[in-house]
Each structure stands twice: as C-alpha cells, then as structure tokens.
Design a protein around this nucleic acid. Structure first.
Lengths: 297, 297
DNA sequence: ACATACCATCTATTTTATAGATTAACTCAC
DNA sequence: GTGAGTTAATCTATAAAATAGATGGTATGT
C-alpha cells in the first residue's frame, strides 16, 4: 500500500498544535486517529518522527526534515488540484495558434503578453507560417485558432474579420522600375519578382497576387523579403505596416503598375466548430481584436 | 477526504498499458478496481481524464497534463521515501561541524567535497570559530563534531588526534624584531603582539601562547592577522602552513625569541558520547583523517 | 454473424480508518 | 507527597473505503 499523503497534513497540524489531542480537535478527529496515522506514517517511512521519551512527544531531527518535505509535497498536490479546478472552469489545457507571417506581430505579441498576465493554466503554442502553410498547419495539427491573411473556407470554420491591411507593390528607389510610369504587366514580368515561399508541405494554391513572370525569387519570411527589396533585387508586395518608414525615407517606392499597386485584404481569425474554443481561446480572441483595433487608430 | 496519490500511479500504468484490463493485470488488481480509482480521481479533480466516446477510452488533453503533473508528484513522494530510508539506514538528518580557524582549510574542504560526492541525505552545517569560541559554539549548538586546536576536556568527550601542526613566532622583515637576536620576554613585551580575537561570547580561557604584554592587537581571523604581520604592525604566532611562502620569500621572518619561536600542537577531532555520530559523522571523520594524513606528506 | 475485447456498473467481501474507552506515565499546584 | 489534570499509546467496535468477481452493453475485426 502506498503512503497516505493525508498523514503529512496530520503531521503538519500536529507539529503546529504541539499535542495529539489539540491536533485531533482541529482536524475534527479522535485523538486515537491521529496517533494511528502518525504511527502508520512512521512505519511506512521506517523513521521515528517523534521522540516519545519525554512527556510531550517531540519531533526528531529526521521528523523535521520529513515534515518540511511533506509540506512541499502537499503544496504540489494542492497545485495539481488548482490546475484541475481551472480545467473544470473551462480553461483548456493547451491553446495552439497558427499565425500568418504577413500579419503585424506587434498586436499579436501584445495580446499574448496580456494573456500571460492573466495567470491562466493554459499552455500556449504559437506557430508562424506563410501563405498556404498557415491553413495546412492549422489542419494538420488540429490547432485551435489561425490568424490568416486569406484561407480556403472549410466545412465548419468560424471566421472573424480583423481590420483591413494594405499591401503595396514596391521596389527599391535605385531599381529601374522605380522611375517608370504606368507600367504594364508585360513590362513587370521582365523583372525579378520577390515572393514569400509557401511554407505548406505540399504544393499549395498559388497566391493570387503573383504576376506569373518567370523570374521569381522565393524568400522565407518578410524580413528577408524586405532586405532583398532594399537591395534592389526585384519588386514585390509588402504589407504597408512593414515598410512605412522606408517609403517615407524614399528608400522604397511604390511601383506605378497599370493594374494597381495597392491591394487590401481582410485578415481573419478562424476557429473551427469541430474544436470549440475554451476560455483561453475566447480570451485570446477578445484581446487580439482589441489590439488590432487599437493598432488601427 | 484528500486525494489518493495511488490513483496517479494507476493512471500512469493505465496510460502505459492503454487498457483498463491490462493495467489491472499489471497492478494485480481487478479491472473494476481500476475503473473505480480513475472515476474517483476524475470526481475529485472535477476533470474528465478520459474520453469514453470511442471504443478504447482515450486520454483527454487535460488528462495528459494531469498525468504529467501526477508523475512529478509520485517522483517527489518517492524522493521522500528514499530520504526516509537513508535516515533509517543510520544517516543523520543534519551534521553540525565547528572548526577552528587556526587549522588548514584545504583538507577540510577536500573532505567536505568528497562528502558531497557521496550523495548523502545529510545536511551539513559548517561554522568557523576562533580559540575558545570553537568549544563554546560546540556546546551551545549541541554540534556533532569540532575540529579544534585545543579544548578543555569535558565529561563525555571522545577526541581523536590529527597530525601535528607547528606555529611559528614571526614578524615582518622590516620590523625591528626581525634583526634582533636572542630576544628576551621583556624585550618582546615592548612591541605590539598580534592575536586572533577569541570568538566565544563570554570571556574565555586565555590562549596559552600569549605573552602578557600590554600592546596587543586583536584581529578577527588569520587572513587579517597575516596582513597585519606583513605590514609590520607587530609580531605573533602563525601556523606554518599559512606562512610557508612568505617565510621562503623572506617577507616574514622567525623571531629569535629566547623562550622558543616554535610551538607545535595536536589538532583534535572531538565528538561527544551524548550525541553519537551517525553515518555521515563517521564518514566525515574517516575522510578528514585521510585528508590530514595526506596533507602531511 | 460470431468471437473477442473493452469498460461501466452492481454486489459481496475484505481491508482500512475512525471513534470511544481505557490505561500508564507524566506535570503541576497545593 | 498527593491528587487533579494532561498526554499519548492501545484496545475494541464500527463506519468507511477499496477491491474482487460477476454481469451487461457496446465496439472491433474477421
């Protein structure tokens, strides 16, 4: 038979009260029950916790150590119970998020920071993907939420719109396209297009914003894409919030494409009815909406 | 009623085996007992650990977290049991040592280091005192062992001798006493004597190696005493192992006192029969003897 | 469709925890 | 000292809990 953790509680109270009878009273038990529990604990551990030579039983040095360890054990057990109570309140044990690298990180990070401040029991996993990779991962991992630029609608998806984001077709000021006017698609296709590499494992649906030229560079993430643009490697779409400063300083300029150099999209926060959100998921939804709205001002 | 930690063990085996029946078999219990335990745990925590929709009951995400936490709890409990078993093997929970600052620290530290390597459950407390302070603390704190230069014998003391250590009466090379020959006690008393301050709370027995002059500086520890000597503040006794290099380099020189400039004493390792040593105390005794013998070579 | 495996549930039984009473050893006040 | 009052172990009866064994409904696979 395994040890009874209850005995550690009895031990604790017994030491606090300093007497078997008082401890029994505080524990709403008979004095004999306390004696029995302590004796059982001593037998189980093979250690004398109390020295019975004196009139009042006195804790041995070994007993002191066992008491301290037992208290830590009880503490740990209480933590588990607390954790469980949070679960039964509706907090999910894990919240898995997939976010699109094309979206601004600042409001996302702010929302996560505020989540952490709530002392919630939920473990949060955050994955960043690009283009079709976002949805691919959402489906493969059975994630709880995806924050995505655009997605193929599924059977039970519940999307919520976030404030619009504008992409701008830009190029370095030093690039030939920077000075041309009313550029045709044909002309555009003669230059190198910079694109984010789709992070999905299989061939995914093509981004509707590609121009179909044969000179396409695939980059892994917007930081690299921005670098490549600044170095004049080619032209490409960038979310406006990422290049605000560069446009202002004139390092990057908008391409005067006849088909339009601005494109706005509506990021979506998507969950699925197959995996309804728990408390943490709903809290995150609320916070992320707030942060995106605030960022827009 | 408090939670039954046994249930965590059942949970662990159940998850490993993947079936209530198999788990019951491994635990030498009936299948119903396993069902009962798990149901009780779920009720107690207020959390569904298993999803019974499928044919085979499957662990819920909450269950996974509870399982992991439960395993840590069991680990902790096992640690306590191990600790207790070490106690019942004769390892005392605490070993309190008092050492004399006049003794070489190196073998003591080496012995302690080797103690630590033994993975023993005993907590070790080490206190350094000077002169009468060593014994005062040994008695006041009911310590287990004292390593002392000399002591007043008590009723039930069990001393063991360590290899002799020599003290030398030294002074800085720049000090007037450094060049005098065949110095009388009277001459010596005209100069400042440097002494370690007795660390006992009450007035203790006077160190037999004091000269009775009126110019005495009391210092707290041999590091300060050595500094004071080097700076030519006065003369004083120093254990040879502490000033070996300084003598060699001629920074400190032996005083040519007519009454003798060398004095050897036998450090003692003392315990009392009122508090017999446990395993850790005996191990320390063994190691410290070894280290002192080794240091002598 | 049949044999098999899975797990909840029921009942009887064993095991364990507890209360209440008793006793021996001890303290303290007088 | 002596007697009243504590303290804690021990004993016995009882209440509570864990367990075994049996049963039944459901899912699996061949």
């Amino acid at each position: 038979m395994r040890i009874d953790v209850d005995a550690f509680k009895v031990l604790e109270v017994l030491v606090e009260e300093g007497s078997f009878a008082k401890a029994a009273e505080r524990l709403h038990k008979a004095q004999s029950a306390v004696s029995y529990q302590i004796k059982k604990l001593e037998q189980h551990l093979g250690v004398n916790l109390f020295c019975r030579d004196q009139y009042r039983a006195e804790l041995t040095p070994e007993g002191k150590v066992i008491l301290a360890e037992g208290q830590r054990l009880l503490q740990y057990l209480a933590n588990i119970e607390h954790l469980a109570s949070r679960f039964s309140e509706g907090w999910e044990p894990k919240l898995e998020l997939v976010i699109d690298g094309a979206l601004p990180m600042e409001p996302i990070m702010k929302a996560l920071k505020r989540m952490a401040a709530h002392q919630i029991p939920t473990k949060i996993q955050l994955n960043m993907e690009f283009l079709g990779g976002v949805q691919a991962r959402f489906e493969r991992d059975n994630a709880d939420l995806m924050l995505v630029k655009d997605y193929r609608t599924g059977p039970n998806y519940r999307p919520q719109s976030l404030p619009d984001i504008t992409s701008i077709l830009v190029v370095a000021a030093s690039h030939p396209l920077a000075v041309e006017e009313n550029i045709s698609l044909f002309e555009l296709q003669r230059h190198v297009e910079l694109t984010i590499e789709d992070s999905s494992p299989e061939i995914s649906y093509q981004d509707e914003l590609q121009f179909g030229g044969d000179k396409v560079f695939y980059l892994s993430g917007f930081i690299m894409k921005k670098n490549a643009l600044e170095m004049g490697l080619g032209f490409g779409w960038m979310p406006d919030f990422l290049i605000h400063d560069e446009l202002k300083r004139g390092e990057l300029v908008e391409v005067d494409f006849s088909g339009g150099s601005r494109h706005s999209f509506t990021p979506k926060l998507v969950s699925t009815m197959e995996r309804p959100l728990g408390k943490a998921g709903r809290l995150f939804t609320e916070l992320i909406m707030e942060e995106f709205d605030r960022a827009e001002l």
